[in-house]
């Protein structure tokens, strides 16, 4: 118990504990998933900074915290410990360096921008179409019900194999691609976007992605080859209807962190 109260023990426990929390506990939450290594590292680093602040913000605690370290470095009766650490730590560092230097076949970390910036205008089936300020024309024309049904049929015939019945990006072909197809059923995906953005992504597909969308593994087909303008608008409308999300409007604006 006495050891538990010591700032040094506390610090070590806190850092290890938070690492374990990020690595093992977060994936246990309902609907959660394993956390990427980079994120675990980032979080642990932040937690470690916090622990360092904690032990050093108060003079008394700081002295206490330093005591065992100084003792290890200086005390005569800790000669063996000192020697041991002087051996083990360099060896560990050597091991880490060896691991890093060794060629590995593991997959490399990637960063993909989910929502790259759209161009100001696109060429759609040979025509120029300005995306900026573009609204879904179907919302002000004809029966919404009908557009929804059209969109639904198009979705089920074309999009469902990858994006799935549940709109969760896990259709029966979804697992074959990387990145996995976009899920529409969560906040933070299409509700952050104007419909014109969605239109652009559907019309131009993976091959139409700008550089920040690389690596170009996106399997999104170029739908302008298959669908008409109205059909793409209809399916866009369907996506929002079905997922219960609302498209971002062009009206009042602000930013959205990503």
């Amino acid at each position: 118990m006495k050891h538990l109260k010591h700032p040094f023990t506390q610090a070590v426990l806190l850092i290890v504990g938070s690492w374990a929390f990020f690595k093992f506990v977060i994936p246990l939450f309902p609907g959660s998933a394993p956390v990427p290594q980079s994120v675990v590292l980032q979080f642990t680093l932040i937690a470690a900074v916090g622990v360092l602040v904690y032990v050093s913000e108060n003079e008394e605690r700081w002295t206490q915290f330093k005591a065992p370290i100084t003792a290890t470095l200086v005390d005569a009766n800790k000669k063996w410990l000192r020697g041991g650490l002087l051996t083990v730590i360099p060896l560990f560092i050597g091991f880490v360096v060896f691991q890093a230097a060794r060629p590995t076949v593991g997959s490399t970390a990637q960063l993909r921008s989910i929502h790259p910036a759209p161009p100001g205008q696109i060429t759609f089936q040979g025509r120029s179409l300005a995306l900026e300020g573009l609204e879904n024309p179907l919302r002000s024309r004809g029966s919404l019900e009908e557009h929804y049904e059209t969109g639904k049929a198009i979705y089920y015939q074309n999009c469902m194999p990858c994006h799935g019945d549940l709109l969760d990006g896990q259709g029966h072909f979804g697992h074959g691609f990387n990145p996995t197809p976009l899920a529409f059923d969560r906040a933070g995906t299409i509700d952050n976007l104007q419909e014109s953005f969605v239109f652009w992504r559907i019309a131009k597909g993976g091959p139409g992605l700008p550089r920040e969308g690389t690596p170009w593994n996106s399997a999104m087909p170029v739908w302008e080859d298959f669908l008409t303008e109205d059909e793409i608008w209809a399916v866009t409308m369907f996506l929002y209807e079905q997922s219960g999300l609302e498209p971002r409007t062009w009206g009042e604006e602000g930013e959205e962190h990503d």
């Binding site: 730590i89 360099p90 560092i93 050597g94 880490v96 360096v97 060896f98 230097a101």
Partner: peptide
């Protein structure tokens, strides 16, 4: 590299 790193540390 690991040997150098070990010695340096």
């Amino acid at each position: 590299a690991p040997v150098v790193a070990t010695l340096l540390t």
